[in-house]
Amino acid sequence: MSSRGDYARSGLVVLTVLVLHLALFSDLRVLGIAPEVPLALAITAGLVGGSQRGAVAGFVIGLGIDLYLPTLLGLSAFIYAVWGYSVGLLQERIFRSAWWINTGVTALATVVGLLTYALFGELLGETNLYTDHLYSVMGVAAAYSLLLSLPMLWLWRWSWPSLRRQEP
């Protein structure tokens, strides 16, 4: 069961990481490409919290970043909710919670998440998403997600201590 403290801490994590992304991470570019921090945060939420928490966290994070993107409001929320849920579902049914598996899954899900974001966006009439540039973005963002996944996983475990109490 989620406690009020879980909600408060996870809200704090989402808000802090989003603002940090806007103020800091979006400037830390390699080859002109910034880390996909919000997407990685949604994926790690699924890895730690499972499908339901992953979906909700993904939706909220996506909605937050949508406010600052020129694309349609709800596009990131849709994709991040799907990936938060999917990764959470895989984690519940297939993965072991080894740190290296979680890290690898975050990087891989970042790549697939970006691809679905671009394809779905183009389907909705957005432009400049599915271009040659996308492949470079996927590569660099995956490398960043590898690096950032461990602190993010830690943040989610900190914000949801009630999950540890439920473990057998």
């Binding site: 499908s51 979906a55 409001l73 929320a77 799907v82």
Partner: peptide, 21 residues
């Protein structure tokens, strides 16, 4: 329960997408 949550969130996103468009 998580499936229902996801469907609700996706419908909300789709509504926002439509309204924004």
């Amino acid at each position: 329960r998580s499936r229902v949550t996801l469907i609700f969130l996706l419908l909300t996103s789709a509504t926002l997408l439509t309204l924004d468009a």
